[in-house]
């Protein structure tokens, strides 16, 4: 059994906007072991990125962690000073952002931006840092690395820039890499290359990855564990097999139904999840998905259900499961 690297308990993150408090992450708990790949899926605004940013202390203003704990490698991130956080960022925990076109500073060379993080966190001198940067560029599959070092971001394609971002993230061999929709802004062939590269590098330096995405295809290829988020809460979590072959939550089922199938007949329509995402300023009292759920019951609108344990690895928060469980344990069928 490998060691727990990151343990998040009852994390709550809120954004205090002029219009009111937005509970972007509401009571989220999960953990990740060393070397594991965890996928967080969910639609826009479900709180997946905010969860990831809170690990690095990168929540943008006016966001704040209002509750819960984050333990990374035995240290409590909540209690860290800004200086301790800084020495962790880019060193033990790294992040790759969604848009490589804007994530690099346009006025500095690629080399400068990679060397910056090496010089900051290691004791290498400039010359060694330079060599290390070239080595990293080779590692992420960039040709003519010596030449690229002197180039500016605008002289590189989107895929290349994302590779540079990965090189920056891996510079100090982090224990945890957070990939925040790393391929959303790239075209499909480049997507596949980047994902392959990440898997390969993960095996080389044995780091854990949190992969945030709304692309279930990518998740199925890379991850061992999946968290499905909606409205700032975890709806269901489990292994790949749990989620793909035995989904329990109505939202997860909806997500899986909405994937286009290769075997689909011509003119076969995609099945969307009806309705609009939850209004985070005025979230419903009960399950956030209830207003869009086809099997919504009265209680769903009033109260958030507890997690039902389906197996050691598989948990889901749904009243239907609670009902089933109750019926199983008592033999009484609760009718309408």
């Amino acid at each position: 059994m490998s060691k727990v690297l990151l343990d998040i308990r009852n994390l709550k993150v809120s954004f205090f906007t002029p219009a009111g408090e937005v509970k972007a992450v509401n009571d989220v708990s999960f953990s990740i072991n060393e070397g594991d790949v965890l996928g967080i899926v969910g639609e826009s605004g479900s709180g997946k990125s905010v969860t990831a940013y809170s690990i690095m202390g990168l929540i943008p203003f006016p966001g704040k962690i209002v509750g819960g704990t984050i333990d990374f490698n035995g240290h409590r991130i909540n209690d860290m000073t800004e200086k301790e956080l800084r020495s962790m960022r880019g060193n033990e925990v790294s992040i790759i952002f969604q848009d490589p076109m804007t994530s690099l500073n346009p006025v500095y060379t690629i080399g400068n931006q990679i060397k910056e993080v090496i010089l900051l966190h290691t004791n290498l001198n400039r010359k060694q840092a330079n060599e290390r940067a070239i080595e990293l560029l080779k590692l992420v599959g960039i040709n003519e690395p010596e030449k690229r070092m002197k180039q500016y971001p605008h002289e590189l394609s989107g895929g290349m820039r994302q590779r540079v971002m990965i090189a920056i993230a891996l510079a100090c061999e982090p224990k945890l890499l957070i990939a925040d929709e790393p391929t959303t802004a790239l075209d499909v062939t480049i997507q596949a290359q980047i994902m392959e590269l990440m898997t390969e590098l993960k095996n080389k330096i044995n780091m854990a990855i949190i992969l945030i995405t709304h692309d279930l295809g990518i998740v199925s290829r890379m991850c061992e564990k999946i968290i499905v988020m909606y409205g700032g809460k975890i709806m269901e979590q489990g292994t790949i097999d749990d989620i793909f072959y035995n989904p329990k939550h109505e939202y997860t089922k909806g997500l899986l139904r909405s994937i286009p199938k290769l075997t689909a007949k011509e003119h076969e329509k995609l099945i969307p999840i009806e309705g609009t995402p939850v209004d985070m300023l005025n979230p419903p009292a009960g399950c956030p998905f209830a207003p869009r759920c086809k099997k919504c019951m009265k209680i769903c609108l009033k109260k958030m259900p507890e997690y039902t344990k389906i197996s050691d690895t598989h948990y889901s928060a749904c009243w239907l499961l609670q009902k089933e469980e109750y019926e199983k344990s008592t033999g009484v069928i609760k009718g309408e």
Binding site: M56, L58, R89, G90, S94, F97, T102, N105, E116, H121
Partner: peptide, 14 residues
């Protein structure tokens, strides 16, 4: 507000 400023922070720069 630019993304590269977030990158700079994520690198651990002061």
């Amino acid at each position: 507000g630019q993304d590269y400023m977030r990158t700079a922070k994520a690198k651990g720069l002061s």
